[in-house]
């Protein structure tokens, strides 16, 4: 993989001093069943996960296994059929600004400029100190898009739009950041750069991240922990700690340790993907 990051990026390991005890996610015996016109479908089966504050956790699983459904339950869009989800002890009942969401699809408001998009959260919460726009500008600078602040989303590339999406979610100072294959629609080089950028932001923030992906490289590169999900109905079949040094950059992807993890996940994912494929073809 190319290391396209400029020398400037090779800065001291981020201080974790900002990390605190905010952002614990508890997924407690959660099952999610869709009871639709086409019958009953179990998307997530009896899942329990605890994510510690500040952890970067990736959920890795084949297409259709229920990753998005589980994440949407944490976000509050989908109510769990059984069990409970808590963030810092508070049960999740509805979507809220304490859980920032970054979507796979482009989800910027097309009628707002980049600055207006990012200022949306601070403006709504009334936390405009000194102004929502000032907060927005700080976060836009953080994702490196200052000179595009006045553009409309359709004038940006896909990668830029996703960075604005990350800035918009963070501008609310959420407890946790939920990301549903945020780089899924990007080409692999942009993806690699976005991943590094995200890690830097995360390191500075010390925010809890729950990151859904079907890409093994991405999961190993980003995560402190990778949870492997089975083919439908989704269950967590492995919970693996990634013992690779941080800060991580593109060089890591050719590291022996990295490749060992990849091999480990390959076997599991291949099996599950086959299962998923057979299920879908039935």
């Amino acid at each position: 993989m190319l290391n396209l990051v400029s020398p400037r990026a090779k800065i001291e390991p981020p201080a974790r001093t900002y990390r605190n005890d905010r952002g614990r996610i508890e997924i407690d015996n959660v099952g999610i069943v869709f009871d639709g016109d086409r019958g009953v479908h179990t998307a997530v089966e009896n899942t329990s996960i605890t994510i510690e504050p500040g952890q970067f956790v990736c959920i890795l699983g084949p297409s259709g296994c229920g990753k998005s459904t589980l994440l949407n339950a944490v976000a509050g869009y989908v109510p769990p059929t059984t069990g409970q989800i808590r963030v810092d002890g508070e049960p999740v009942k509805a979507p809220g600004p304490d859980r920032g969401m970054v979507f796979q699809q482009y989800s910027l408001f097309p009628w707002m400029t980049v600055r207006e998009n990012v200022a949306f959260g601070p403006r709504i919460s009334g936390r405009g100190e000194p102004t929502p726009e000032a907060i927005a500008d700080t976060f836009i600078e953080m994702v490196g898009l200052t000179r595009f602040a006045k553009r409309y989303p359709r004038e940006l590339s896909g990668g830029m739009q996703q960075r604005v999406g990350i800035a918009r979610a963070l501008a609310n100072y959420p407890r946790v950041l939920l990301m549903d294959e945020p780089f899924g629609a990007l080409d692999s080089q942009t993806r690699a750069m976005m991943s590094e950028n995200l890690l830097k932001i995360w390191a500075e923030f010390g925010i809890t991240v729950l990151f859904v992906t079907h890409d093994i490289d991405e999961a190993v590169f980003l995560g402190d922990r990778v949870l492997v999900m089975s083919a439908s109905p989704g269950r967590i079949i492995a919970d693996i700690k990634i013992d690779l040094p941080r800060p991580r950059d593109g060089d890591l992807t050719v590291d022996e340790g990295f490749i060992r993890y990849k091999r480990l996940f390959h076997a599991q994912i291949r099996q599950e993907s086959l299962k998923a494929f057979e299920q879908q073809n039935r």
């Binding site: 989800s107 959260g121 609310n172």
Partner: peptide, 13 residues
């Protein structure tokens, strides 16, 4: 687009 509605919900609207 429902994703825009979800985004707004998650931003506290």
């Amino acid at each position: 687009d429902p994703v825009l509605v979800r985004a707004a919900q998650s931003l506290g609207a």
